[in-house]
Design a protein around this nucleic acid. Structure first.
Length: 679
RNA sequence: CGGGGCGUAGCGCAGCCCGGUUAGCGCGCCUGGUUCGGGACCAGGAGGUCGGUGGUUCAAAUCCACUCGCCCCGACCA
C-alpha cells in the first residue's frame, strides 16, 4: 500500500525553504491547479463541458477529479514535510537539483560522476534507506519480501510481519544511522529459536544446498547439495552391491492402467500423480504464455503417468523375466527421480519432484521376502547412524501409515531439532499383491506354479533435509565429516606479498598431503575476502574442520585448527594427515552422540493420556506408550494432538517394561507405539 | 467462484496519491588501490522494455481500461 502511507499528507512539501528550482516547480504546479479549479464550475481549461468522472469520462486527470481529491486532503505542515523528506527519495532529488548537480553541462558530461556524488552524499548524511523509511511508517507493502515470508508460511512456518522481520534483520529502524547499521549487520540466518522453518530455509540457501525453481513445488539441487547426495549414493550403493543387488533403470512414464491394477496402490497415489496426455505443442498465433498449446490431435489414447514410484512397471517386467525358481531371488535397485504432486512443499522434505533410490526384489518364499525387507531396513539404519550421524528408531508402520499396496511397511524415524519426527526411509514387504496383479509367477522345483513374494525399499533426498535438521545450528549447516563435500578447508592468512607466497606454499603442501590421505580438502586462496569472511562462509556450508595458516604458523611449523562450532588449537605439521583424520572421526562420533542424547532428552516412555496431551502440547518429541491398534484411536489422537504413530518399535527400541493398556483408550495394548508430530 | 493485495536492477525496497530533472537506495556484482589472525575501506563502474497491451496527455513507472502472473482470506471439495 504505497499510497495509503501517505494519506496523512506528511509527504507534501510547501515552498518554504526549498531550493530555488524545486520551489519554482511547485509554485508553477499549484498555479496551474488553481486555474483548473476555477474551471470546475462548468467547463475545463479548454472550454469543453465537464462530465462526471463516472459517467464515461475516464480521464482521471480531469479537473473535477483533482479538485475532489484536493478537498479531502488534510492540510500539510512544513514540519510534516521535513519529517517525510528524511526518508523520501523524491525530496532528496529536489534538494540535490537545487544545487545544480543533477543537471547542467557538468552533469551531462559526466552523468555517472553526478550519481556517485549523490551516493556519497547520502552515505555521509546518514540518511536512512527506503526500507528504513518504510519501517518507520509502520506499513509494509506486500511484495517480494512478503511473498517469501508467505511461501515459508505455506510450507508450514509462521509468517513474520514486515516489522518483525525488519527487526530481526537488525537495526533498520534506527533512524539516521540506519544504513550504516544495515551495512554492519551480516547475520543472514534466522535463529532456530525464533522461527524453525525460516531457519531451515536460510541454512539451505546459505549453504547453497538448493534453490527454488521457476516451477512451483520443485527445487534445484545446487552443486554443494548434490555433492552430499552423491556421497550418500556412493555409500548406500556400495552397501546395496554388498548385499547382492544390481542397478537397473526403468522408464519415467508408466501406462495409466498399470496403476489401476493394484487396488490399494492406485488409491494411495491417485491424488498426486502427474499425467502426460499430449505429445505435441501447437502454435496458437498469440503471444506470451499462450503462444503454444497442446495439439488436440496429439492426445494420447491412454495417458502416461509420471512415476510416483515404480512398483507397477517393474513388476510388469519381472513377469517377463521370471519363469523358474532358478531366476530367484531377483534383486534390483534403481536410482531415479519421482514425481508426486504435493500441495505443501518444503525444500528437500517434500517437493513435487525428488531423487531417490528404489530397490525391488522378488523371492520364492514369504520368509525370504520378509528377511530382505528387514535386511534393507538394517542397511538404512547403518547408513543413517554411521554416515549421517542421525539416530533412528526402526519399526513397523500401522495399517493407516503403511505403503499403499504393501503387506507390511517398516520405517526409520528420526527426531529433528524442533522435536518433530522425520520418516527417513521405508522398507516394504509387498507380499504377493503385485505379483498377483501383474502375474509374476515362477515354476517351483516340484513343478508347481507360484506367485513371487516382493519387497521394495527406498530412501530419498529427503535425508538431506534430515541431515540439516539434525545437526545444523544458527551459523549454518553442520555436516558429519563422512558426508561433507568439503571435510577440511584451509584458510591462508597474509599481509605482504612475501607472506602470501610462504603461506600459500605451506597451504598447497598441506592440501596435497591431506588429499593423499583421502580427505576432501579445499584451499581457499581468494584474495577478495578477508579471512573472517571466509570462516563464516565455510561454516555456513558445514565444513567440519578448518585449518588456518598464517605467517606465525609458518614460522612455528604448525597450523591452527578450528572445529565447526568448537575452539581453536594449534597442530604440528608433522603427521598432520593422521591427526586430521582422527579429528574428523571424533567429530563424526560427537555429532551422533549429541543427536542421540538430544533425542533421548525429548523422549518420554510409558506415557499416560494426560502426560501425552501435555507432552504434545509442549515441546513435543517421541512418546512411547501402549496402543490398542484401532484406527479410531489413531484418528482421535491425530485430531487432538497432531501426533501420529511413527512406528511400533523393534525390540531394541522398546521400553524395558511393555505397556499393558492403550495409553489413550485404556483397552488392552497390542503393541508399544512411538508417537510424534511428524513432517 | 467471491473479496483483498502485490508485480520497478540478481535480492530486498523507495518513487505512483498530486504525470514533468538523467527512475533511485541498501546488499550483491565488476575494475583498481590500500587492507587481510572472525563478516574491510576508498575510488571508479556495470546492470532496468518500471509484468504486458491499449488509452488519456505536449509528456505516463505515476492517471484510466483490459490482460497475464503470484500471494492472502473466504466459499466449494475432501
Amino acid at each position: 500500500m504505497p499510497h495509503a502511507a501517505r494519506r496523512d499528507g506528511s509527504r507534501r512539501l510547501r515552498y518554504g525553504r526549498l531550493p530555488h528550482r524545486a520551489r519554482a516547480r511547485l509554485l508553477h504546479r499549484d498555479r496551474v491547479r488553481a486555474v483548473r479549479c476555477t474551471a470546475v464550475a462548468a467547463r475545463d481549461l479548454w472550454g469543453r463541458p465537464l462530465r462526471h468522472p463516472d459517467s464515461g469520462d475516464r480521464r482521471r486527470g480531469s479537473p473535477l477529479r483533482r479538485v475532489r481529491h484536493g478537498r479531502r486532503r488534510p492540510r500539510r505542515t512544513l514540519e510534516g514535510a521535513r519529517e517525510a523528506c528524511r526518508g523520501a527519495e523524491s525530496s532528496r532529488r529536489l534538494f540535490d537539483c537545487g544545487g545544480g548537480r543533477g543537471r547542467g553541462p557538468r552533469a551531462q558530461a559526466r552523468p555517472r560522476a553526478a550519481r556517485s556524488w549523490r551516493r556519497r552524499r547520502v552515505r555521509l548524511a546518514g540518511r536512512p534507506d527506503p526500507q528504513a523509511a518504510r519501517a518507520r511508517r509502520g506499513t509494509g507493502s506486500a511484495s517480494r519480501r512478503d511473498r517469501r515470508a508467505r511461501r515459508a508460511q505455506s510450507q508450514g512456518g509462521r509468517r513474520a510481519g514486515p516489522q518483525e522481520r525488519a527487526a530481526a534483520q537488525g537495526g533498520v529502524d534506527a533512524g539516521p544511522q540506519g544504513c550504516l547499521q544495515v551495512m554492519a549487520q551480516a547475520k543472514k540466518i534466522t535463529p532456530r529459536a525464533q522461527d524453525f522453518s525460516e531457519w531451515y530455509n536460510d541454512v539451505i540457501m546459505q549453504a547453497e544446498l538448493a534453490d527454488y525453481s521457476p516451477v512451483r513445488g520443485c527445487m534445484v539441487i545446487r552443486p554443494h547439495g548434490y555433492h552430499v547426495w552423491e556421497l550418500m549414493q556412493r555409500a548406500l550403493d556400495d552397501m546395496f552391491k554388498a548385499t547382492g543387488h544390481r542397478n537397473a533403470y526403468f522408464p519415467l512414464f508408466i501406462p495409466m492402467s498399470f496403476l489401476a491394477k493394484e487396488a490399494e496402490h492406485v488409491e494411495g497415489f491417485a491424488k498426486e500423480v502427474a499425467l502426460v496426455t499430449h505429445t505435441r505443442l501447437k502454435a496458437t498465433g498469440k503471444t506470451g504464455a499462450q503462444a503454444v498449446m497442446p495439439d488436440p490431435a496429439s492426445l494420447l489414447e491412454e495417458p502416461l503417468v509420471v512415476r510416483p514410484t515404480s512398483e507397477t512397471i517393474i513388476y510388469a517386467m519381472f513377469a517377463k523375466w521370471i519363469q523358474s525358481y532358478r531366476d530367484l531371488p531377483l534383486l534390483l535397485n534403481q536410482w531415479c527421480n519421482i514425481v508426486r504432486w504435493e500441495f505443501r512443499t518444503r525444500l528437500f522434505l517434500r517437493t513435487t519432484e525428488f531423487l531417490w533410490q528404489e530397490g525391488h526384489t522378488a523371492h520364492a518364499t514369504e520368509a525370504e521376502a520378509e528377511a530382505e525387507a528387514r535386511q534393507m531396513l538394517g542397511v538404512y539404519r547403518t547408513f543413517q547412524e554411521q554416515w549421517m550421524a542421525m539416530p533412528v528408531i526402526t519399526g513397523l508402520k500401522t495399517e493407516s501409515e503403511k505403503f499403499a499396496g504393501a503387506l507390511r511397511t517398516y520405517a526409520l524415524e528420526a527426531l529433528m531439532q524442533d522435536n518433530k519426527a522425520l520418516q527417513a526411509g521405508t522398507s516394504h514387504n509387498l507380499g504377493q499383491n503385485f505379483a498377483k496383479a501383474f502375474g509374476v509367477q515362477y515354476q517351483t522345483a516340484a513343478g508347481g506354479l507360484e506367485h513371487v513374494w516382493n519387497t521394495s525399499w527406498g530412501v530419498s533426498t529427503r535425508m538431506i533435509g534430515g541431515l540439516v535438521m539434525t545437526h545444523s545450528d544458527d551459523n549454518g549447516l553442520v555436516c558429519p565429516p563422512k558426508l561433507a563435500p568439503v571435510q577440511v578447508v584451509i584458510v591462508p592468512i597474509w599481509k605482504s606479498e612475501e607472506e602470501r607466497g610462504q603461506v600459500l606454499g605451506v597451504g598447497d603442501q598441506v592440501k596435497a598431503e591431506l588429499v593423499k590421505a583421502g580427505i576432501r580438502v579445499e584451499l581457499d586462496a581468494r584474495d577478495s575476502l578477508k579471512p573472517g569472511a571466509k570462516y563464516f562462509e565455510w561454516e555456513a556450508k558445514g565444513v567440519p574442520l578448518r585449518l588456518e595458516i598464517g605467517p606465525r604458523d609458518v614460522a612455528a611449523g604448525q597450523v591452527m585448527t578450528a572445529r565447526r562450532g568448537g575452539s581453536k588449537a594449534p597442530l604440528k605439521l608433522d603427521g598432520l594427515a593422521r591427526t586430521v583424520a582422527t579429528a574428523l572421526d571424533e567429530v563424526q562420533a560427537a555429532l551422533f552422540k549429541a543427536a542421540y542424547e538430544r533425542r533421548e532428552a525429548h523422549s518420554i516412555r510409558g506415557v499416560t493420556k494426560q502426560q501425552f496431551l501435555e507432552f504434545m502440547k509442549g515441546a513435543g518429541g517421541f512418546a512411547y506408550g501402549g496402543f490398542c491398534g484401532s484406527a479410531a484411536c489413531e484418528g482421535e489422537i491425530k485430531q487432538q494432538t497432531a501426533a501420529t504413530v511413527r512406528v511400533l518399535p523393534d525390540p531394541e527400541f522398546r521400553s524395558p517394561e511393555g505397556p499393558k493398556t492403550c495409553m489413550w483408550c485404556g483397552k488392552p495394548s497390542v503393541a508399544e507405539a512411538v508417537w510424534a508430530q511428524a513432517y
